[in-house]
C-alpha cells in the first residue's frame, strides 16, 4: 500500500477509532512507523513493533519536539474532544482544545512540511433541524450551533480546518472527513452509549432517520484516504438509513417510548442517569442525513464491510 511513507502521526491515539486505525496502518504498512499521541493513559493499547506511543498534551511545548524529531509523511487528527462526557462547564476547555489545539496541529504540519493531514470532524456540524433537507452535501452551511451554542467548538474546528485546507492546498494535502454516527464495540461516543444503554427513552413523537457506520469501516476509510482521496471535505456514510426506533430494536436492548418534546425539561434529571448531552436530544428529534457521493467518487463501492444492521447488532458485544 505505502512504500516510501516512513512515519505517520496519530493524534488522539487512545480513542477507539484511533486504536483500530493504528492497527490497520501497522498491518498494511509494516515498513512504516506509527507514532500515537494522546493525553490519556496509553498503557492498555496494543503493542506492535512499528507503533510507539507518547502520552502528552498536544497543546504543550514537547508536542512540537515530536514533529522536529520525526519527519512525518501524514498526520491523523482524531483528537477532537467529544461532548459525550462533558457538560456546559467544560465548554471553555473544549473550545481551547478543539480550536486552539487544531490550529496548533495545522501550524506544525505546515512548518514541518507534512505531506498529508487527515482531520476527523463530524456530521453534527450540519445540525439537527426540522428543515434539514435529506442528503446534506459538504457545501451546506454548518448550522449546529444555531440552537446549541455548546456545539460552537465543533463547527469552529471544522471551519478552521477547511479554511486552512483551501488556503494551503498547494503546499499540503488536507482531508476533512465528516462521518455519520460511528458505532462499534470500542467506540464510546454519545450515540453508541445511547444505543447500548437499557431503558433510555425513544421518541413516540419523533422518529428521525440515521446513518450508522461501523468503527472498523470508518478506520478502514481513514486508512484508505491516505492514498486514494485528494484534498477536500467529505461526508462519510453508508447508503443505508434506519430510523432511531428501528436502530434501537435492532440493537435489541430494552427501551421505553416517551415523547421527546417532554424530555428537554427533564434532560437535567436524565443526564444524571446516562451521559447524554442536551444537543443530542435534537438529533433524536430531527434527522441529519448526509450525502456520500463525493467520497464514493474516490473509494470503490466495497468500502464498507458491515451493513447497518450488522453494525448495530455488533454493538451487543460491548
Amino acid at each position: 500500500m505505502l512504500k516510501n511513507k516512513k512515519k505517520i502521526l496519530v493524534i488522539g491515539a487512545a480513542g477507539g477509532l484511533a486504536r483500530i486505525l493504528s492497527g490497520l496502518l501497522s498491518k498494511d504498512m509494516p515498513d512504516c512507523e506509527i507514532i500515537g499521541v494522546d493525553s490519556r493513559d496509553l498503557n492498555d493499547l496494543p503493542k506492535k513493533s512499528n507503533i510507539t506511543y507518547h502520552q502528552m498534551r498536544y497543546t504543550r511545548g514537547n508536542f512540537e519536539k515530536i514533529f522536529r524529531d520525526n519527519e512525518f509523511y501524514a498526520v491523523y487528527h482524531l483528537a477532537r474532544m467529544s461532548h459525550a462526557h462533558s457538560n456546559k462547564t467544560s465548554l471553555t476547555q473544549r473550545l481551547d482544545l478543539n480550536i486552539m489545539g487544531t490550529s496548533r496541529i495545522l501550524e506544525l504540519c505546515l512548518k514541518f512540511e507534512v505531506r498529508k493531514v487527515l482531520i476527523l470532524s463530524t456530521y453534527h456540524v450540519y445540525g439537527a433541524l426540522s428543515d434539514n433537507p435529506t442528503f446534506i452535501k459538504e457545501d451546506a452551511p454548518l448550522r449546529a450551533s444555531i440552537k446549541h451554542p455548546e456545539l460552537r467548538d465543533v463547527t469552529e474546528m471544522d471551519q478552521l480546518a477547511t479554511n486552512w485546507m483551501w488556503k494551503n492546498q498547494h503546499k499540503i494535502e488536507t482531508i476533512v472527513l465528516r462521518p455519520c454516527s460511528i458505532v462499534g464495540p470500542q467506540i464510546k461516543n454519545s450515540m453508541s452509549q445511547y444505543l447500548t444503554t437499557s431503558y433510555v427513552p425513544v421518541g413516540i413523537d419523533f422518529n428521525p432517520m440515521f446513518q450508522f457506520i461501523h468503527e472498523f469501516d470508518m478506520a478502514n476509510i481513514l486508512a484508505r484516504c491516505l492514498d486514494e482521496v485528494p484534498t477536500g471535505i467529505y461526508n462519510v456514510a453508508p447508503d443505508e438509513v434506519i430510523s432511531i426506533r428501528e436502530a434501537k430494536k435492532t440493537v435489541g436492548i430494552p427501551f421505553f417510548s416517551f415523547p421527546i418534546m417532554a424530555l428537554s425539561p427533564l434532560a437535567s434529571t436524565f443526564k444524571k442517569l446516562w451521559n447524554f448531552p442536551d444537543y443530542l436530544l435534537e438529533y433524536i428529534k430531527f434527522g441529519c442525513i448526509i450525502d456520500n457521493s463525493e467520497i464514493k467518487k474516490h473509494l470503490k463501492d466495497d468500502a464498507l464491510r458491515f451493513t447497518t444492521k450488522e453494525a448495530l447488532e455488533l454493538l451487543k458485544l460491548r
Partner: peptide
C-alpha cells in the same frame, strides 16, 4: 416537519419537507 407526532406520522406515510433538494 417540526410538529411532534404529526410530522413523524406524515413522514412515515411519504410526506417530505418541501425543499428543492
Amino acid at each position: 416537519t417540526g410538529l411532534p407526532f404529526i410530522g413523524a406520522w406524515a413522514a412515515e406515510g411519504g410526506a417530505v419537507l418541501g425543499d428543492r433538494q
